[in-house]
Design a protein around this nucleic acid. Structure first.
Lengths: 172, 172
DNA sequence: CAGTATCCTCGCAGATACTG
DNA sequence: CAGTATCTGCGAGGATACTG
């Protein structure tokens, strides 16, 4: 049954759910926020079929959450970049992440802290840092956070904005 | 294709999405956070079929997000109450709400502020208050928030906890 | 690389009727 | 009231092959 469109509901939650309430969309968004940009990277990380990925990316572009850019004209190379609208979904994703960290893991597990490193590269990688200071390169895009890091939203968000601005500058 | 279970992924976002990444679950949760408790109320508000609602409620109960309680023994009356785990999803829902308010409505629309009224009743209703001070009884469960109310999460969350505690007391 | 195209299957979800 | 039972179909999503 064609999923009922919630986009005309008066409830902002329903509308948000309409845009990003799909499991794949949420995961695409997670990766986008973490800095993933290319089709093949999304596909490989998510392990999703090209068809589904195409569908979700198009949907998010239509919704103005992502923007498709041709980075190397004539070379079939595109990047999907977060728009302002998309970037502002970070707090919601981070809230989910924090909840997931708190409630979906075995107790006693070493908590991990998210650190969005602004390395100055176009594709700033996200690294993880455990409570003991050990740093881990993210392989499976493990985003995480301790409860004791309430400023994480601000931090991550600032890094996202900085990254976006840098890319905008690079284009001009 | 049986939706791939994400529950064993190392990523907390994926795990959270596994629990509540479904559109209906998110809307059920929205209503639960707003104080809805009974099967028929969820059904009527969401306009969803009994089968789907049953499925989602069971799923959420299995995941320990909701708790099913028999409120009137022998009378086929139950209530689905948020657990601590469920209540802590409020920030995520509120983040979605704020995003929805900001990005999915026409500009110029009067922003609305969420106010979780702690009226002392078991089923404290949620009311809305517009920027001009006009108060609106929620019919379609319009949850909303202005950008200028960053403390809204704290506020709503405190009300939820208070409500849960009062109910717990009432049982003993 | 970044997708399309095609096939095929499973299960989500609506509708309707029924039950304790 | 709070579901269960049954029927049905559409479409989501995997697999595979192909294209500019």
């Amino acid at each position: 049954m064609t999923r009922t469109s919630l986009s005309r509901y008066p409830c902002p939650v329903a509308r948000a759910v309409d845009v990003i309430g799909d499991p794949w969309c949420l995961l695409v968004l997670r990766d986008a926020i973490a800095g993933v940009r290319r089709f093949s990277d999304f596909r490989d990380r998510l392990g999703v079929s090209a068809k589904i990925l195409t569908d979700r990316l198009n949907r998010l572009v239509d919704q103005d959450v992502l923007e498709r850019q041709e980075t190397n004209p004539g070379k079939q190379r595109f990047e999907y970049e977060l728009t302002a609208k998309g970037r502002e979904l970070a707090p919601a994703l981070i809230a989910l992440m924090q909840w997931g960290e708190r409630w979906t893991f075995e107790p006693g597990r070493s908590p991990v802290r998210l650190s969005v490193r602004d390395t100055g590269e176009a594709l700033a990688p996200i690294r993880l840092e455990t409570a003991t200071g050990r740093e881990v390169q993210v392989d499976d895009l493990e985003m995480s956070a301790t409860e004791a890091a309430p400023d994480i939203t601000k931090h991550a968000y600032a890094a996202l904005k900085a990254r976006a601005n840098r890319n905008k500058d690079a284009q001009t």
